[in-house]
Amino acid sequence: MNLARIVAAGVGVTGAIALSPTLAHAADAPAAKPAMVSVLHAVPGATVDVYANGKELLPDFKPGTLTDPVSLPAGEYDLKVVAPNAGADGKAIIEANDVKVPAGANITVVAHLSADGKPMLTPYVNDTSALAAGKARVTVRHTAAAPAVDVRANQAVAFKNLVNPKEAMADLAAGNISADVVLAGTQTVAIGPADLSLKAGTNTIVYAWGSAADKNLKLAVQTIDGLGGMPGGVPAGTGGQATAGDSSSAGVIVLGAAGAGALAMLATRRRSRTERA
């Protein structure tokens, strides 16, 4: 699937990352709180190489890859996405110059399919607010080409009627749960079950991604720690949340073309944490 379609899916939508000169300029900017960014590639079949200011950042960035969170100084970046092995001078699939990374941003940018199978970008705000002692947070995000679903914990519905690209979350007692995804209002399992260890002071974020029609639905899991409520701690980001019943999904921002560039470059390390159902 050509990643260029992602740009078309995002054009015309207000961008959360504004345009403005180059990586070198970022070093000259006044000191500001850095952005913490992870990227999940959840568009099946689209492997790309990613460049920032002519330097390769993510070679062979494959579907199912979730990058480690990276602290980026606020500033401006020139971005380019090309086909694998095309090189820095290769024809751009996506190109976004002078992209501004705002100070203090904390997001996981997900390239994924809409409910009807069209590529799209959704950056989610990761809730890193303090947790009470012994508590863990679980967040579920629907990023699959699939209809509404119910998310179950130990076969009991925890999040009801979740639709793409909404998210839901809850703070629970730390412990182990068996999670699965069923078609909304039914017992028909679409993904799972998968065993999750919810550790105290963490936000475990579960992404349902892939395509129901193509029978390649999967789970990806991201864990943010350091949320134990100690003042002066350095969590992985700042808050932002939406619940299953929140139709506005305040923690979700859909980016335009500038966001497509941000998807591709906001990481320098990769770690695949994809869990197959």
Results as ranks from 00 to 15, higher is better:
Glu167Leu: 12
Ala24His: 12
Gly185Val: 05
Ile107Asn: 14
Gly210Ala: 03
Ala264Ser: 09
Gly185Pro: 00
Ala88Tyr: 02
Gly104Thr: 13
Gly12Met: 10
Lys55Asp: 14
Val151Trp: 00
Ile224Arg: 09
Ala74Pro: 07
Gly201Cys: 04
Ala9Gly: 15
Ala190Asp: 00
Ala130Leu: 05
Ala18Cys: 06
Asp127Tyr: 10
Asn126Gly: 14
Leu23Cys: 12
Gly175Tyr: 09
Leu121Cys: 05
Trp209Val: 10
Ala31His: 13
Ala144Val: 02
Ala32Pro: 09
Val7Ile: 10
Leu40Met: 11
Ala220Ser: 13
Val221Gly: 03
Thr202Arg: 02
Ala105Arg: 02
Arg276Lys: 15
Ala132Gly: 03
Ala136Met: 00
Lys166Leu: 12
Leu121Trp: 00
Lys118His: 07
Leu113Ala: 01
Gly45Asn: 08
Thr188Glu: 14
Val101His: 03
Ala236Lys: 09
Ala194Lys: 07
Ala153Lys: 11
Asn161Trp: 09
Val234His: 14
Ala257Asn: 09
Thr243Leu: 14
Val81Ser: 07
Arg273Pro: 12
Ala115Ser: 13
Asp49Asn: 00
Val50Cys: 08
Val140Ala: 11
Gly245Met: 11
Ala194Gln: 07
Ala179Gly: 08
Asn216Ser: 10
Ala133Glu: 08
Ser247Phe: 11
Ala130Val: 01
Gln155Asn: 15
Ser272Tyr: 12
Phe159Tyr: 05
Asn106Tyr: 14
Ser249Pro: 04
Gly54Tyr: 03
